[in-house]
Design a protein around this nucleic acid. Structure first.
Lengths: 231, 231
DNA sequence: TGTACATCAGTGAACGCGCGTTCACTGATGTAC
DNA sequence: TGTACATCAGTGAACGCGCGTTCACTGATGTAC
């Protein structure tokens, strides 16, 4: 064969060989951390094509440019790597929430800036959000539960913010968490729609956002007219 | 072994060999159709544990009680079987929609009966709905698109129904489809919540349904107060 | 109705391949003195 | 500062296994006469 020298590109079409370029000035710990990062990134990349559960250890190490056995220096198995991905992806989620909370607190104008923050975060961490969207329903029970717990947390933090609004202060907490749950449902659906847009239709984003804005506004209108403790 | 007669319930730990009990009075075509059915059921069962994309052909044929090579008498590959599952699962979806439409048409009391129909359908076809919920985000691009298209269809048929309501007749169609999209989002989220309930908490269902009812009611309240063509 | 032949769902052996994991190893980095 | 030893991230061979797919086959069902 013509097999020459290097663990070559391999790619489906042209994925670059993620091999670590020999960074000479690094300590052993720094190198190890960088290889770990490379493994995480490789898994994140690959799980956009097929579900994370369908990824093989060898596939990931190959994309990361290391030998399969070196995997065990970083993770016990693929499940552990998956949970690490959940952890850092929900990191993006918390970043999103923090950004929304520190933004405009004027109750009449929360929707638009919040959606802008959402778009910005999805754009900044597309692979993370794609991973969350995909594995929230499709993943292994462990991963799925971890993600759902985080979304519930997101919802209850949003409920706290809503309770602070003067107009909502008198609401029963059950109604407030019903409302925040509904808003989170719309946010999740909007995120999925943003990730689903075909790259060659840049106007799609504006459409998705207009829809989300109208829906959230309608919900807020409904909440204003809502009778506390209905039934 | 004690293998007796029927294709039994299949529990996780002690999965029985789904071998076809020799139904003597059947034609060749009938037998073939039954084997095909057994393959579909086996795949549906197995994809509750791991994503469909992670299933192997051999795994499915083993659970169905036939030899791997016999698979090719029924499907060209696993992808074709997956699309067949989408087709029949989506059949459940249409059944649901039809049931909702032929139900009460009193606009003030749509929510409760619709949710009852939803619960009934999810209970009747849990594996189908679980498959749809899982593969909607987690599946291969082909399967994902097929499911999303059906949900869009569901939404636009709901829009037609909404437009028939006297109180909505004057609404711009963009607002109506925004509303139906929002309701479908809630329905999808509710379905996921129903499928996610732990079996040992029977009261969870009532909780999920109360949440869904409140959310849909709030949305309808909001829609009533909504200014057509806002912005 | 009876016979001879065609069809074809399901079988079983075989293949080459990628899988996860084990093991002894190498050689650069880190540490003790 | 220099030397001797320890650590350990990454290597490469090897393993047994399940994978998808091929192929020639069997024998019950279906069909033509």
């Amino acid at each position: 064969v013509s097999s020459s020298s290097r663990p070559r590109p391999h790619s489906r079409s042209s994925r670059p060989p993620r091999a670590r370029p020999s960074h000479e000035g690094e300590s052993r710990d720094e190198r190890k951390a960088r290889t770990r990062r490379t493994l995480l990134d490789a898994a994140l990349d690959l799980s956009e094509q097929e579900s994370f559960g369908a990824l093989s250890l060898r596939e990931v190490t190959k994309a990361a440019g290391i030998v399969p056995t070196a995997f065990y220096r970083h993770f016990h198995d693929m499940d552990e790597l998956g949970l690490a991905l959940v952890d850092e992806s929900v990191g993006s989620l918390h970043g999103l929430l923090r950004a929304v909370r520190t933004g405009a607190i004027d109750p009449d104008h929360v929707v638009r800036p919040s959606l802008e923050v959402l778009v910005e975060h999805v754009r900044a961490h597309p692979a993370h959000f794609r991973f969350l969207a995909r594995e929230r329903s499709g993943g292994s029970p462990t991963i799925r539960q971890a993600i759902r717990r985080e979304i519930k947390l997101f919802s209850s933090e949003l409920a706290i913010d809503i309770a602070r609004f003067p107009t909502r202060a008198a609401w029963p907490s059950a109604d407030i968490s019903m409302l925040s749950d509904l808003l989170v449902t719309v946010i999740v659906a909007t995120t999925e729609a943003l990730l689903d847009m075909s790259p060659e239709r840049p106007d799609a984003e504006a459409e998705v956002l207009r829809l989300a804005r109208d829906q959230m506004t309608l919900i807020i209108v409904g909440a204003t007219a809502w009778r506390p403790s209905a039934d």
